[in-house]
Design a binder for these strands. Structure first.
Lengths: 232, 232, 232, 232
DNA sequence: TATGAATGAGTTTTCATTCAT
DNA sequence: AATGAATGAAAACTCATTCAT
C-alpha cells in the first residue's frame, strides 16, 4: 500500500544519495529521505485541504512510510503543519535574495522585482494556499517560527534600497512606504491565484489561467511603475 | 436574511422587531427570527473557524435555539455554510448597486467605487474571511448558488459603464478589460485584510489596522486612478 | 381499499361522500377520510421500509395531512403500525371466507383453496412484506390484536372440513394435520414473493414475476394435491 | 464492558487457536480474532434486530473491542452487515457441497438433500432471519457481493444432476425446472422458521418447535418426493 | 380539527494519537 | 527505525414526539 507513489519530485531527488546500505539503489532506512517524503506529501495535503481539513491518515497513506513515523519525526499534526509552513516561506525569501537588483537602474529593478513576485505566486500555488490557510488560523503557527521575521526583514531592505535609488535618481516619488509598496505588489500577485475559484465562479474566467497570465503581469508591473513614478 | 445586513449587526437589528404577540419583546415561535439568529451566529463561526474548523455544536450553543433547528432549517452543516455564503455575497453586491456612479464624472466615480470597495472590505472582515475560506474549498459551495453569477454580472456592467464614460471623455485609457480592473481593485482591498495576520507576523504591523487605513485608501485609489489615466 | 395502493385514489374514493360542509365536492374536515389516507400511506411505507426503517416524517409528508394528525389518530408510530397490520390481516381472512368450498368436491375444493392462496400472496405483496416484518419483531404487535386469533380459527375450520370430506370420500390420506397442510400451502405461496429479491440476486430470476406465475401456481397446486392423495 | 463472551458457535471455533504468544490464552493483538469476534456479535444483533433496528453501540458493547475497531475493519454499519451476510450465505453453500449425493440413488439423494436443507434452516435461525431482513432491503446489500452468484450456481448444478439421474432412471418426472424445485424445497424449510412468530400467534403453535420438527421433516421430504415421482 | 415549529435523547461516524510487536 | 492494530473523545446527524398557534 505505501509502496511508493512518488507524488513529488523532491523524493526522487534523493535517489542519487550514496548507495551504502541500500537495496537496488534505495536505502532501506533513510531518515532524511523519509522526512522529506512526509513533508512533500504534507505540503500537498495541507495546501489542498487546509489545516483542519487535512487528514493525518490521508497524508500517511500517500507517504512511503506509516503514520507512526509522521509522529516520530514531527510530533503532531500541528508540528507537521509548522514544518511545512517554515519550508515554504523559506523558499521564496531565498529566491528573492538571488535577484541582482542593485545592478539595474531603479525602474528596471522595480519591474524585475514585481515580475519575479508575479511569477513566483503564479507558479507556486501551494505557497499561496498555505499563506491563505495560515491567515485563517491567525498566523499562530508561523509566529512560532524563529527564522520567519528575520527572513522577512531582508525583503524590506531590498525594497528600501530600490526606492531610495529611484528617488535619488529623480524617477520615483518619495512619499511611499516600502512595506506599503510591498503590500501593493503582493496584493495583486496573490489575489488572482488565491481567489481564482470564487472569481472563476463569479465571472466565468480563471484569473490565474494561461490566457491572462501575460496580460496580468503587464498590468501589475505597469500599475506599480505608474504608481511610483514621480509626477511633475 | 432578506434584509441584507452585516452578520454581526443583524442580531441587533431584530430587537427592533414589532413587539406584538411577544414575551418580553421576543416571540416564542418566530421562524424568521430563528433562521436569522442561526445564520448570524453561523456567519461568525464559519468566518472565524472555517468550514471544517467550525463546530455545529459550537454554533448551536451560541444560538437562541438548538442544534436540531439548525438541521431543520438548513439540512446540514454544509447547507448552513452555503446559506451564510449566499447572504454575505448578496450584501456587498446589493450595496454596490446603491452607489450613484452615473451621476459623477468618470474619474470621480472611479475613486468613489474604489473607495467603497476599500471601505466594504475594511469593515466586513467576515466577508473577506468567508471568501477566503470558500476558495480553500475550490468555490464548490458558492457554485451551487443560483443567484451568484447573475448578481456578479451587475458589477461588471457598472465598471464597463464607468470605463466607457471615461474613455469617451478622453480621460481613461481604452485598453483595460473591466474584469481585470475589478480584479486589481479587489486585490488591493482584499489582501490587506485577508492576509493581515501573516503580514503582521512578518513585518510587525497590521496592514488593516487603524493607523494605515487612510493611507492605504489613498494609495489604492491613487494607484487605480493613475493606472487608468490616459497618458499623453 | 387494499386492492389499491395508490394512496391518491383512495382519497378520491371518498369524494363521493355527501357534500355538506364541503368545498368543491371535497370535505374540509373528514376524520374518516383522513384516517384512511394516513393508513394507506403508512401501509406502503411500513411495507416498503419495515417498522424501524419507516420514518414518521416520510409517512406524514406523503399524506394529505400533517404529522400531528397521525399522532392524534394513532397515538404513536407503533400504534399506526398495529393499525396497518390489523387491517391487512383482516382482508385475507375476509376473502377466504367468501370462497364457496363446501359446494365443490374435495379435490377441486383443495385446488381452489390453494389457487386462491397463491393468487392472494402473488397480488398482495404489501401483505406478504408486513407479515415478514412482523416476524422480524417476533409478532409482538399482532399479538395485541383482539380479533387476530379468532379470525384465524375460521381458516383452520375451513381446512378441517375440506380434509374431512376428502378422507370420507376416500380420496385424501387421513394422517395430515390441517394446520400443517395450511403451513405447507402458505410456505410455497409466501416464499416466492417474500424472498424474491435474494432469490433474484442468487439465480437471476424473479420467482414471483409474470413468467413463472402460471407455472408456479400449477406446481404448488399439483404438489399439494399429490401430497394429500391417498396412495395405494 | 469488554468481558462478555461470544455466545455463539463461531466464537468457540477460535478458542482452539494456537495459544503461543498469548496472555492467558488470548492474544492481545490478534486482528483475525478481533474481526471474527465483531462478526459473530454482529451476526447475532443484525439477525435479532434487523439492519435498521440494530445499534452499532449495542454490537460494540458486546464485543471484546471498541466501536472504533468495528469501523476500522468494516468501514460502516452497512459494511459490517454486508460482511455478516456474506459469511452466513457462504456457510450453507459450503455445507451443501459436502453432501455426497452422487453416490446415492436419485430418490435417496433427493431425500437427503431435502433433509439437509430442512435441518440447516431449522438449526440456523440467524441465517433465516438475515435472509428475511435482506429481502426487506430488496437484496441490495447481497447484490454487491462478488462471490454470491457464483456460489449459488453450484447448488443449481447439484439439483440438475440429481434430477437428471432420477429422470434417466425412470423414477422422476422430466418436466421440472431445477430452480423451481429448489424454490419449493426452500419455501417449506424456510417459512416454518421465518414466520414462526405470526404463525404461533395465529394458531397457538410454534411451527418450528421441537414437537413438530420430525413430523415436518417427513412431511416436506414426502411432499417433494411425491411431487417428483413419475406417475404412471 | 389542523399545523409548522421546536426538542432532547440517541445514533452513526470521524479523528488525532498511542500501543504492542 | 518501522509498523499495523487499537483507542477515547468528539463530531455530525437523526428521530419520534410535543408545543404554541
Amino acid at each position: 500500500m505505501k509502496k511508493s507513489k512518488p507524488a513529488s519530485e523532491a523524493s526522487k531527488a534523493t535517489s542519487a544519495a550514496p548507495a551504502s546500505n541500500t537495496v537496488e539503489g534505495r536505502r532501506k532506512y533513510d531518515p532524511e529521505e523519509t522526512k522529506r517524503n512526509i513533508l512533500d506529501i504534507a505540503t500537498q495535503e495541507f495546501s489542498a485541504m487546509g489545516l483542519t481539513g487535512a487528514r493525518v491518515d490521508a497524508i500517511a497513506e500517500r507517504t512511503n512510510t506509516t503514520k507512526r513515523m509522521l509522529y516520530y519525526y514531527f510530533g503532531s499534526k500541528e508540528g507537521l503543519y509548522e514544518a511545512v509552513l517554515e519550508q515554504v516561506y523559506g523558499d521564496i525569501r531565498a529566491l528573492e535574495q538571488e535577484l541582482q537588483l542593485a545592478e539595474m537602474d531603479p525602474e528596471e529593478a522595480l519591474r524585475e522585482f514585481v515580475g519575479f513576485t508575479f511569477g513566483y505566486h503564479d507558479k507556486h500555488r501551494d505557497f499561496v494556499r498555505l499563506v491563505t490557510i495560515e491567515n485563517i488560523h491567525g498566523a499562530k503557527y508561523i509566529e512560532q517560527s524563529k527564522t520567519f521575521k528575520a527572513r522577512n526583514s531582508t525583503v524590506v531592505k531590498t525594497i528600501e534600497d530600490l526606492i531610495a535609488r529611484g528617488v535619488a535618481a529623480g524617477h520615483f516619488r518619495a512619499d511611499v512606504d516600502p512595506i506599503d509598496l510591498h503590500l501593493m505588489i503582493n496584493s495583486m500577485c496573490f489575489y488572482r491565484v488565491a481567489n481564482r475559484y470564487t472569481w472563476g465562479a463569479a465571472f466565468g474566467r480563471d484569473p490565474s489561467g494561461a490566457r491572462s497570465r501575460t496580460r496580468h503581469r503587464e498590468m501589475i508591473i505597469d500599475s506599480v511603475a505608474r504608481f511610483m513614478r514621480r509626477e511633475g
